[in-house]
Write a protein that binds this DNA or RNA. Structure first.
Lengths: 231, 231
DNA sequence: AATTTTCTTGACCGAATGGTCAGGTTGTGG
DNA sequence: CCACAACCTGACCATTCGGTCAAGAAAATT
């Protein structure tokens, strides 16, 4: 038992290999879909022989499942900003920011998740029925409380959540389409900020949130707004 | 030359067969993705021998391309309501209705389209760069005109379109997730109406559209469905 | 050093896939 | 009725796929 974990300890190497494989798998699955992805392609992208993949992940499905579960965790974690908020302006605004950031930083994972759900969630249906169902109910309760407190319009919480999910996820899943319509260029930092601000402004105004701290100066469409980065 | 085209004329049978195959293909592609779909599966679902598929569509890709192009046409056609409108309330409202209806009536096609774009549009990239680009520019011009006329807030037209696409498409692509969160039941007619009304109300209000003719029953959101789960 | 455990990998396998083709059937125009 | 074209399909093929395995290499443990 080494007092100082050397850079090449057994466990570390295992974790590094798994991480390497998972990263390659996420990319390949996102680009080709589960059916179109091949273990050979993933192996090549990870720079490992195919048989080595099967040492760490016994089957293609096991590897895929791990990729999906990883992105699901990231997805759920973005909810923290929702819970810790004092009101709808802060909570929903920060949630939009957080989910937009996920679309920006994890486009591959977002696509894998979208693909999984689109194909009737063959491997994470249980998560949908348990974790996600509870999560949604909890957030709907928060929204309903805000509504009853008169801090926002009476909207259906479920459909509001769908609206948030759809809009933010769109920037990842349809990123290629957006890029094409943007002259073939990926969105710049300023454009990402503009996307966030536009989305937040429209939705927050749309649900009747009037927060002096966030209502913006006279509703300009200008993209000079700054972005708050939660840690 | 038969004066009256009999029900089994050559051309009619051909069109019927193609239609049958395309319907089966759309379903299989949407459920399994391009890579996961097999010609055998499509053949079984169409009730035809596999070799027959290859008579009408030489390759899997040709069949897939046809499916994608078909849904793209439906997609584009929904734009008509946008063009014919007198103002943002009518135009955008009707566009949301039309696209929601597509998500409802053509969920399989919508998923195929989403999947195609998600995978970097391998077969319809040219459509994105030509038809869709022009379409988008034209609608952005309309929106900008409405803005300059003071009929809505100054929002970025592109991001507004993304918001519309995302929200409406979500009800098809993530229909399975919505269904799971709805207690495993598909959305009822009333729930679809609620989804439409919620979406329209939030977005139209969010972009500052105030049209007395379209502000719904009794101005303030009466919104029949507080909870979307029927008891 | 000896031994046990963990890791690595080229070679291989049965199954499935997209696609082909030859030969047969059916409809059609003359 | 004939001849031609269009249509249909069971059998077949080359390739690729996910997965296995045995034999070795590299650590960890004793």
């Amino acid at each position: 038992m080494p007092a100082h974990p050397r850079p090449n300890s057994k466990k570390e190497r295992r974790q590094e290999s798994e991480k390497l494989i998972l990263a390659a798998a996420e990319k390949v699955f996102s680009e080709a879909g589960f059916g179109g992805a091949t273990m050979q392609l993933i192996a090549d992208m990870a720079g490992l022989p195919k048989a080595n993949l099967h040492y760490y992940f016994p089957t293609k499905e096991a590897l895929y499942r791990q990729v999906v579960e990883n992105i699901f965790q990231i997805w759920l974690k973005a909810a923290d900003v929702f819970d810790d908020a004092d009101g709808p302006a802060e909570g929903i605004g920060a949630y939009i920011d957080a989910k937009m950031e996920i679309s920006r930083r994890h486009p591959a994972g977002s696509k894998v998740w979208a693909s999984e759900v689109m194909h009737r969630a063959p491997v994470i249906q249980d998560y949908l029925e348990t974790t996600l169902l509870q999560w949604t109910a909890g957030r709907a309760a928060i929204i309903n409380r805000w509504i009853s407190e008169g801090r926002m319009d009476p909207v259906d919480p479920d459909h509001l959540l769908y609206l948030l999910w759809a809009t933010t996820q769109h920037y990842a899943d349809f990123g290629h389409q957006i890029e094409t319509l943007n002259g073939g260029q990926p969105l710049s930092d300023a454009q990402w900020d503009a996307a966030k601000e536009n989305t937040k402004r429209i939705i927050l105004k749309g649900i009747g949130v009037v927060d002096p701290a966030d209502s913006g100066p006279s509703g300009q469409a200008d993209l000079g707004s700054r972005t708050s980065r939660p840690e």
